[in-house]
Simulated assay, not measured.
Amino acid sequence: MDDKFFVGANKGLNILFTLITFALLLYASFYYSAQVAEQNNNRSAEAFRNIADQASGLLQEKIKPFPQLLRSTRGLVLGNADLQPSQWSAYVNSLSLNYESLGIIGLTYTESVFDYQLESYLEKREVMFPKFKIFPDGVREEYMVELYFAPEEISARVRGFDIAVEKHRRQAALLSRQTGLMTLTHPISLLPTDAHSLDYLLLIPVYEDSWHPDISLMAETDGQFKGWVTIGFSLTRLVQAVLEETNHPIRVRVFDNRLPDRAAYDSEPTQDDRTTAQNKVLKSIISLGDQPLTLHISPKAGSLYAEEAATYEQESLVLGTVTAPRPFGRGFQLLRQQPARGRIYASLHWQEPTVLRPLV
Results as ranks from 00 to 15, higher is better:
1 M>L: 10
2 D>P: 01
2 D>N: 12
4 K>A: 12
4 K>T: 10
5 F>D: 11
6 F>K: 07
7 V>C: 03
7 V>K: 02
12 G>H: 04
17 F>C: 01
28 A>L: 05
28 A>W: 01
32 Y>A: 06
37 A>W: 03
37 A>V: 03
38 E>V: 02
39 Q>G: 03
40 N>V: 12
42 N>W: 05
43 R>Q: 15
48 F>L: 11
51 I>H: 06
53 D>N: 13
56 S>P: 02
64 K>Q: 14
65 P>E: 03
66 F>H: 07
70 L>K: 07
77 V>M: 08
77 V>P: 01
87 Q>V: 06
92 V>R: 02
96 S>V: 08
99 Y>L: 07
105 I>Y: 13
108 T>Y: 08
116 Y>L: 08
124 K>M: 12
126 E>C: 03
126 E>G: 05
128 M>L: 15
128 M>H: 06
130 P>T: 14
133 K>W: 01
134 I>A: 08
135 F>H: 10
139 V>H: 10
143 Y>Q: 09
156 A>N: 12
157 R>A: 15
164 A>K: 01
165 V>K: 07
171 Q>E: 14
181 L>V: 02
182 M>P: 03
191 L>V: 13
194 D>A: 04
196 H>A: 11
196 H>Y: 09
196 H>Q: 14
198 L>H: 04
204 I>R: 06
205 P>W: 07
205 P>L: 03
209 D>F: 06
210 S>D: 06
216 S>P: 02
219 A>D: 15
220 E>I: 05
221 T>P: 00
222 D>H: 12
223 G>C: 05
224 Q>H: 11
225 F>A: 04
228 W>R: 02
229 V>P: 01
236 T>I: 07
237 R>V: 03
251 R>V: 03
254 V>L: 13
257 N>E: 12
261 D>R: 09
261 D>H: 10
262 R>K: 13
269 P>Y: 04
270 T>I: 09
273 D>M: 14
277 A>V: 08
278 Q>M: 11
285 I>L: 10
290 D>W: 02
293 L>K: 04
300 K>A: 15
301 A>R: 07
306 A>D: 05
308 E>S: 14
309 A>P: 05
309 A>M: 11
312 Y>S: 05
314 Q>E: 14
319 L>Q: 04
325 P>Q: 01
329 G>D: 01
334 L>C: 05
335 L>D: 11
342 G>V: 00
348 L>Y: 04
351 Q>Y: 07
354 T>V: 15
359 L>R: 10
